[in-house]
Simulated scan of single mutants.
Amino acid sequence: MAEIQLRNVNKRWGSFIGVDNFNLTIADKEFLVLLGPSGCGKTTTMRMIAGLEDVTDGEIVIDGKVVNNLDPKDRDVAMVFQSYALYPNMNVYENIRFPLKVRGVDPATHDERVRRASAMVELDDFLHRKPAELSGGQRQRVALARAIVREPNVFLMDEPLSNLDAKLRVSTRAQIKNLSHELAVTTIYVTHDQIEAMTLADRVVVMEKGVVQQVGSPTEIYDRPANLFVASFIGNPAMNLIDGDLCDGVFETRNTRITGLNTGHGKTTLGFRAEDASLARDGEGQISAPIYTLELLGDATMISVRIGTSLVAVKADKSFRAEIGDLVSIHVTPEICHLFSTETGQRIDD
């Protein structure tokens, strides 16, 4: 069992707050993703769990034991970095084997464990090669195998796909997803890529400026963002957000009038996702504006209009044809709308 608890964890450097009062219990065998932009505190949080950064305040508990004062080597965690960190003078076999040697594991078991780990990441044909002879994706798989061979209680992965091209990211992401299912080990994964978070995680922790913004399953985070930051960060494209006034169930701003909303009043930010809206016949939609841009996506056409300072996107059929400047009408039903306080940024619950 490797349940991890972070209890009121803080990290400060002088007056700068890197992580602010982080509280979370990570269940045994859970795949948790720390998600947020650069500088939000996600990597610092992982490094504190690993023991590579000291905790300023609070406690980190692994498997029922407070580990604040334990060295990294004594925490039974294995870390995979974005930089691979392979030994260039060793071949793949020896790179994978290295953790077993330094930890004094019985040499009689090394070959079986190395080959089992290499098979999991499909490296059997490359064990004799040096890192310089491998592609980026193959080097990242060596780093994964080197973590697997240790059979740790916890995997920590710090943006392991960030150095790979788009095609390799997809295939390696699938491999990590399959490995997490096969190994059933508690995993904490750091990324700024919300697609990685949505596809890999059991739960996602969204962070900004050292503060946890929302914790939930990918579906919960996507369907009910807790605030404007989460709404704007999750989704491709991000949620459409329009500032306006809400009174007696009617939201109004330039080119926009949506009725039938059940809650809230005053200055309100209304959100909806591009795939939930649709094009309407002229004059029958809740938003009417000239086309700002069109993007052909293959399976759909993304249309954007400008409402005040906001770009608002809607997905149309791939066969849709129009020109920039043409007037379009967008159908936005109350059921697809999310409401946020413009002042506080917090979600206004239905």
Rank of each mutant, 00 (worst) to 15 (best):
E3M: 12
L6Y: 09
R7A: 05
V19S: 04
D20M: 03
N23S: 08
L24S: 09
I26C: 07
V33W: 08
E53D: 09
V61M: 02
N68K: 01
D71L: 14
P72V: 10
V77L: 12
Y84S: 11
L86Y: 07
Y87L: 12
P88F: 04
M90V: 08
Y93V: 02
N95R: 12
R97W: 07
F98S: 13
K101P: 00
V105H: 05
P107H: 02
A108Q: 12
R113C: 03
V121R: 12
R129W: 09
R129A: 13
G136L: 05
G137V: 05
Q138Y: 04
L144N: 02
A145D: 12
R146P: 07
V149E: 10
E151V: 00
E151Q: 11
F155A: 06
M157Q: 01
D158T: 04
P160D: 12
L161S: 08
L161V: 05
L164I: 03
L168M: 08
S171F: 06
A174V: 13
I176Q: 10
N178K: 15
L179I: 06
T186L: 02
T186K: 00
I188T: 03
T191F: 08
D193S: 06
E196I: 03
A197C: 13
R203E: 09
V204K: 06
E208K: 15
P218C: 06
T219F: 13
E220T: 06
N227E: 11
V230P: 12
F233M: 13
I234P: 02
G235I: 03
N240W: 01
D243R: 14
L246I: 08
D248I: 05
E252D: 10
R257G: 00
T259Q: 14
T259F: 01
H265L: 14
T269I: 04
T269G: 03
G271S: 07
S278C: 08
L279N: 01
A280Q: 02
R281T: 09
G285H: 00
I287A: 04
L296P: 11
L297D: 04
D299W: 09
S304A: 15
I307N: 00
I307M: 01
G308H: 11
A316F: 02
A316H: 02
D317Q: 12
S319D: 15
G325F: 02
L339W: 00
E343K: 11
Q346M: 15
I348M: 13
I348F: 08
D349N: 13
